[in-house]
Computed example of a mutant assay.
Amino acid sequence: MFDTHCHLDKLFDHFQSNNLKINFTSSSIPQILKDSSHYYLSVSTSVSDWQAVLDISSRFEQVYAALGLHPWFVTTDSLTTIDQLHNLLSSNQVHAIGEIGLDFSYEYKNNAQNQLEAFSKQLTIARKSDLPVSMHLVKSHNEALHELKKIPVNGVVHGLGTSVEMAQHYVDLGLKIGVNGVVVRENAARYQQLVKYFGLEHIVLETDYPNVKLPGLITSQLEDINIVANTVASLLNTSIEDVIMSTDHNAKQIFNPG
């Protein structure tokens, strides 16, 4: 399966310090990462984890690096660091720009202008570099759609939790919807409705490891994607094999591994 949105650098926090290269030891490598039948888009959130994401991608051939500045971590100062992306893209194998986006929920809305500037800059980099994006978009859909129509890109709106009508605007732009462990929750009716309405053609699977935990569990695991896939199969009354085949195809069309 293809996990299109996870933070694999968090797996190795204990084996990394001061933004130095990760010291990969046999004890630090999860078994699932040794299974070459799984693919991952390892996204970053700030400049401080870009090198870790690149290290992991270079260590595991089925892990694809995404570099970006998450809206939560955008500051006036960090806007200048976006320019570093150009150098990293030219000297490293990067498959996407992400995790980027806009978040205008109460805690982050006061930084809306900086977020918009960072989002626009990173969309432009993705467009010029012919790279897809992985986006975090919360309470900012009108603004996000405005930018995406000005700077069209390929990619995924990860963990999208909105109305069918709003989601349709993203689908009309050719973007996919990332479905994660939220779909397993009993109170996620609107999220489940998106899966039922758009079907396998317009979705990809993700864990958002370690941020999304399945109901009743204390921690998140990369293996949780199996439960996500089974839940999608149940919602669509189809086989798990069809879910895996279709979502993997969608993901590979976007992120072009290999």
Rank of each mutant, 00 (worst) to 15 (best):
F73I: 04
H146D: 14
G159T: 07
S91R: 14
Y64G: 05
A96E: 02
Y197W: 09
K213C: 14
Q122R: 04
I97Q: 02
V183M: 03
A233P: 03
A251N: 11
L79Q: 03
M245A: 15
L194F: 13
R190A: 07
A118D: 05
V138S: 06
L11T: 01
Q62T: 15
K213N: 14
A167Q: 10
P152N: 04
F2A: 13
T4L: 01
L217P: 04
Q253S: 14
Q122I: 01
E186T: 13
M245N: 13
T80I: 10
H249A: 13
L69Q: 12
V179T: 09
H146V: 09
G216L: 02
Q51Y: 04
P210L: 05
V243E: 07
P210D: 11
G199R: 02
S44W: 04
S46L: 08
Q253W: 06
V171H: 13
L85D: 05
V138W: 03
E61Y: 07
S91M: 09
H14S: 15
G155D: 08
G199C: 00
Q16E: 06
L20T: 13
L137H: 03
Q221K: 15
A126M: 00
G161R: 10
S220D: 11
Q84M: 10
S105R: 05
V195E: 00
M1I: 11
L214K: 12
R127M: 12
P210I: 09
E165S: 13
V74E: 10
N114A: 14
T207A: 06
S78Q: 07
K149T: 09
Q168H: 05
Q122L: 00
E223L: 05
V63I: 13
K213F: 03
Y191P: 01
F60N: 04
S120Y: 06
Q193A: 15
I100Y: 06
L79G: 09
C6S: 10
M135L: 05
V204I: 07
L137N: 05
A126W: 00
V153L: 09
V157D: 03
A126Y: 00
I240M: 13
H202N: 15
D224F: 08
K149D: 07
K121D: 10
V228H: 01
Y64Q: 08
A144R: 00
Q16A: 10
L8P: 00
T76L: 13
V179H: 08
E61N: 14
D77W: 03
H141P: 10
I100D: 09
K196P: 09
E186H: 12
R127S: 15
Y64A: 08
V232Q: 00
E206S: 02
L194S: 08
D172Y: 05
S17Q: 12
L131P: 07
P215A: 12
I22A: 08
G216A: 05
T80V: 10
L11S: 06
Y39D: 11
I97G: 12
L137K: 09
Y197H: 15
Q51P: 08
E241L: 09
D224N: 15
F15V: 13
R185M: 11
P210N: 12
H249G: 09
L54A: 11
L20E: 15
Q168V: 04
Q192D: 11
S120N: 11
I218P: 01
K196R: 12
V74I: 11
T4H: 02
L148M: 14
H158I: 09
K10A: 07
L88C: 10
Q192A: 03
L175R: 03
Q16P: 01
S37F: 06
T75G: 09
D13Y: 05
